[in-house]
Design a protein around this nucleic acid. Structure first.
Lengths: 198, 198
DNA sequence: CGGGCCGGTCAACAACCGTAGAATGACCAG
DNA sequence: CTGGTCATTCTACGGTTGTTGACCGGCCCG
């Protein structure tokens, strides 16, 4: 194995360990020394390669650009966007998306993670907005986004309730009508009955 | 002012400062020294009163039992539970619920916060479950819960999109049909059209 | 084959953290 | 008035953290 290969491999194993720890412990509780030990190298080497802890996080959280943002939501009507969103959610629901979780868990305490998350979420948000015909499209898009993130957080980070172990398909099917009423103007007319109405 | 009063007042001002910092920075980045400085006292005093940082957090996060869990969701059909949930969400949507945010932001890194959150969420969850007549009631309840938390996190912690500044009423109204389709078996039949179907 | 590049280790520093305990000084009871 | 309680502060300790720079040794180029 050539020298460059060796280096890239070591670098990658550091990144893998870092991703894992960031996802499990969040930014603050993840220490460079622990990452180094998990990767089987010295802490100094991590600094030598990545320069700074923030930078290590940046590099470790790079690929969720792929995991986090749905890949280029194709335009289309509000009907199609729902299916695209559901498909994107579904793919994130089987198999732990480690890099995404690293970003999500660190999001609330690390400013770089927060910005990275915003950068991944905003274009997606505006694409959803564009596909919704109503006046309050922006808010509806935000709600759709909030639901997606709420589900992922509750499933992977909080591990609360049935959401932790339910099958992706089951979740998707329950969410579909929900998404449809949000993405389109149609509100089920008969079911709108706020509180007291005989 | 008597001695006991003075003490309780100082203690309270420490708690206020602690809540604020935990809500803004999360558990790890909040330091006892900083809390003390914000409260205008010495760090040692904080230790003297609260013994430990974990304990300080516990005390600072006590009142969200009131903020977090909807107060005694009254039983009732799936229709009523929707309105109760929406009302609970609505009340949390105007005015920043500082203590709740402290718990939420620290939840992902501090085990006490996580447990506290679970303790507040689980009874609520089972009450929702009880009000839903379908077989997959547990999952539906979890989804409802996930949506609520997703909305709050995106509004207060992430401050992403229109959700950050929209009026509570507007959010509630958009969410209502969503909640109804989740809490009841009724699925809008005509709108179910997965992908390609002519 | 020899010398420099480079992957990698080691030891140490400065800062900060939670925490402990002694010291101070004002207040209240007897 | 006096003695002790108690709110409050000060100083310091041990540990961990991010980060640094010197050092070592094998690989590759000329």
């Amino acid at each position: 194995m050539t020298r460059a290969q060796q280096r890239r491999q070591t670098e990658e194993s550091i990144l893998v360990a870092a991703r894992q720890m960031f996802a499990e412990l969040g930014y603050e509780r993840t220490t460079i020394r622990a990452v180094a030990k998990a990767a089987g190298v010295d802490a100094g080497l991590v600094m030598h390669y990545f320069g700074t802890k923030d930078n290590l996080f940046s590099r470790a959280a790079e690929l969720p650009a792929e995991e986090l943002s749905a890949d280029e939501l194709p335009g289309g009507g509000s009907g199609e966007i729902v299916e695209v969103l559901l498909a994107s959610l579904s793919s994130r629901l089987d198999g732990e998306p480690v890099a995404s979780l690293a970003v999500l868990r660190s999001m609330l305490t690390n400013s770089d993670a927060a910005e990275r998350y915003r950068a991944a979420a905003e274009p997606q948000l505006s694409q959803i907005t564009a596909a919704i015909p109503t006046e309050d499209a922006e808010l509806r898009a935000s709600l759709l986004s909030a639901i997606v993130h709420g589900v992922i957080i509750e499933r992977y980070l909080l591990r609360l309730g049935r959401l932790a172990d339910a099958s992706p398909d089951q979740i998707i099917e329950l969410l579909r009508p929900c998404f449809q009423t949000l993405a389109t103007t149609e509100m089920p007319p008969s079911t709108v009955r706020p509180a007291g109405a005989s």
